[in-house]
């Protein structure tokens, strides 16, 4: 068997494989639900109502999607330019740390200054964190997959140190936890009384902005050119190195915003379990979205719905919520295969 590239894929060619990938995902999940002793239709129904069935459930899903939109965008921006940023997890924590440093009473600013300041600082922190690996890549040819991935572990240990030492909450009963943000540094809720915070709106805006950057701005054009064919871009006079560095700043900044939004909008303080791997799940989200910024919003909602829905389903049906992780993993694998099939046809020898 071998793969033959398809020069001009038909519309069906572009739609059918991804649709089949989603169908296959649900088929796998259904089989697992059966094995676990549940009725697949009931399980999917419970996941659906668990994610969207009530106002509470819906808002929970939107809240869970928020950090994934940010990290998904961070990954999509970087991957488009073929900058393989696997370090969104660390960049997220860098943003969270800066938010905590500025927002726990060190500055006496009103909310309308405090929040933009924290957000900007979080972006800067995330951006600078990715600038290092990007410089190593452009200057010395060091593989950014290795540096960004491994730096996640180093940075998490550093956070652990901060939470045990300089940033430890003196009122925290000995828990490794930062002090709480002042109310001026908290993102308010969109509607009083409902749990959804303004971080979600910020994430939607960010997605829209990234889309505008991609399609309308000079930088977007340059980033796409460098990602598609760096050799041709360089030949045409596009400053490839500078574009990669700018991409790194944008990508890291978006991941940093995820940290700001989680601390300021949801948790109110920094702990080591702020992110259950949003930086990595962001990769799945970006891939499912085919790196399209608006697709990221949809993919993040899908992923969040499965997680939130599976949690409530497992309480009701007794099927373990791990099924969510499996669905996500199989969705990614099937989607990668589907993307291949939109571009190549399989031929038997």
């Amino acid at each position: 068997m071998r793969l033959e590239p398809i020069e001009a894929p038909s519309p069906a060619r572009r739609i059918v494989p991804p649709a089949l990938a989603m169908a296959a995902t649900f088929l796998v999940a259904a089989a697992l639900a059966l094995i676990a002793g549940g009725n697949p239709f009931a399980v999917f129904g419970l996941i659906l109502t668990g994610a969207f069935g009530s106002k509470f459930a819906l808002l929970e899903t939107l809240n869970s999607a928020t950090p994934l939109i940010f990290t998904g965008l961070a990954i999509a921006v970087a991957f488009r330019a073929k900058l393989w940023n696997i370090g969104a997890e660390a960049q997220l924590y860098a943003g969270a740390v800066l938010t905590v440093i500025l927002g726990t009473g060190a500055l006496g600013l009103p909310s309308y200054l405090m929040l933009p300041l924290c957000a900007l600082a979080a972006m800067l922190a995330g951006a600078l964190l990715l600038l290092g690996p990007a410089l190593l890549k452009t200057r010395l040819g060091v593989d950014e997959v290795v540096t960004t991935l491994l730096f996640n572990f180093i940075f998490l240990l550093f956070i652990s140190y901060l939470l045990e030492g300089p940033l430890k909450d003196p009122m925290g009963m000995g828990w490794p936890k930062s002090a709480r943000l002042t109310s001026e540094a908290r993102l308010p809720r969109i509607v009083e009384g409902l749990r959804l915070h303004w971080g979600f709106a910020l994430a939607l805006t960010a997605a829209l902005l990234v889309w505008v950057i991609n399609t309308r701005t000079t930088l977007g054009y340059e980033m796409r050119a460098v990602g598609q064919n760096a050799e041709a871009a360089g030949f045409a006079g596009i400053p490839v190195t500078r574009v990669i560095l700018k991409t790194a700043l944008l990508s890291g900044g978006l991941a940093g915003l995820a940290g700001f939004s989680e601390v300021s909008g949801l948790k109110g303080a920094l702990t080591l379990d702020l992110s259950p791997g949003f930086g990595y799940t962001g990769i799945v989200v970006a891939m499912l979205a085919l790196l399209h910024p608006l697709g990221v919003v949809v993919a993040a909602l899908f992923v969040a719905a499965i997680f939130v829905g599976a949690d409530s389903m497992s309480r009701a049906a007794g099927v373990p919520s791990y099924i969510a992780d499996i669905m996500l993993a199989s969705a990614l694998l099937f989607m990668v295969l589907a993307i291949l099939l939109t571009k190549f046809r399989v031929r038997r020898d």
Partner: peptide, 25 residues
């Protein structure tokens, strides 16, 4: 650039000086 359309390829060398204003294409 193979997957760019003709327009995007046609301006590859001159986009900055001729088809871009204050960062907007």
């Amino acid at each position: 650039i193979a997957d760019f359309d003709l327009t995007e390829n046609a301006i590859l060398e001159t986009y900055a000086s001729r088809f871009s204003r204050r960062g907007w294409m």
